[in-house]
Design a protein around this nucleic acid. Structure first.
Lengths: 133, 133
DNA sequence: CTCTGTGCAAAGCGTTTGCAAACGA
DNA sequence: TCGTTTGCAAACGCTTTGCACAGAG
């Protein structure tokens, strides 16, 4: 709990129980949409407001402490910033899994074929997770 | 114009001037968000309704005639379905460019590292286009 | 003590829906 | 002619805003 507090401070975010809880839930669940976060936080803070979730998530995204992932055919989810990775999204159960991929092959193809300078990559692979296939 | 009509018929979409215009604009502009489409169609049909744009775009996405691309930090855009490709998004001017990439390396990495079965890939590369860099 | 965050209610905005009239096949 | 589409207005749902009070530093 204390470590989350320090983490928040590093990102210039004041430490409040609600914020600590958001980080904790995201840490435990990996990827959550606004509604999932709200439901989980309601269990801890029965009078928490959706507005608080939005304000904090937005603040955390701005401070580049969270990242926003727009999933095809699903709600946008949020996750703690970590080293670059792709997302595997199961079309059956909706589960989202991280996977560290080497995207240098892709980036190289781009530099060979076009004059575009790639700064960041967003790779989402849809299909079936091992449970659903 | 007639070819668009036939194209629509192939996808079980009745041919209306508004639909033909949507296809025509997307063909000419490549990627457009709802608002851009609406503005362009207004020039052709001064009394067209936003609801018509939404209904048609949604119908076309359902018939898998258009595809929806969720861009990080920008509005969702629509494009005519074509062979698989990635998107290059310029952070400066917002321009979106298609690029055909061989994603077999990525898919292979996934199958080696996880038990996930990949059905489709969504690759969005952000950076600077040749004009902006 | 001061400034920021929280919770509530209201406002805002993009998207969808219901319906009568117009249109396509 | 019959079923679908259009355009309008209203409804809807998600997100943001304003404000008074509470809490963090």
């Amino acid at each position: 709990m204390l470590s989350y507090a320090n983490l928040l401070k590093e990102y210039d975010l004041k430490v409040t129980p609600q914020r600590v809880a958001i980080v904790d839930e995201l840490y435990k669940n990996g990827h959550m949409n606004i509604d999932e976060l709200y439901r989980k936080l309601l269990e801890r803070f029965p009078s928490i407001s959706l507005a608080t979730i939005y304000k904090n998530v937005n603040a955390m995204v701005e401070k580049i402490f969270l990242s926003e992932v727009k999933i095809p055919n699903a709600k946008t989810v949020y996750e703690l910033i970590k080293t670059e990775h792709a997302h595997l999204v199961c079309n059956e159960c909706g589960f989202i899994e991280d996977i560290v991929l080497d995207s240098s092959d892709i980036v190289e193809q781009v530099s060979k074929t076009s004059k575009f300078k790639v700064d960041s990559t967003e790779i989402i692979l849809s299909g079936l997770c091992h449970k659903c296939k």
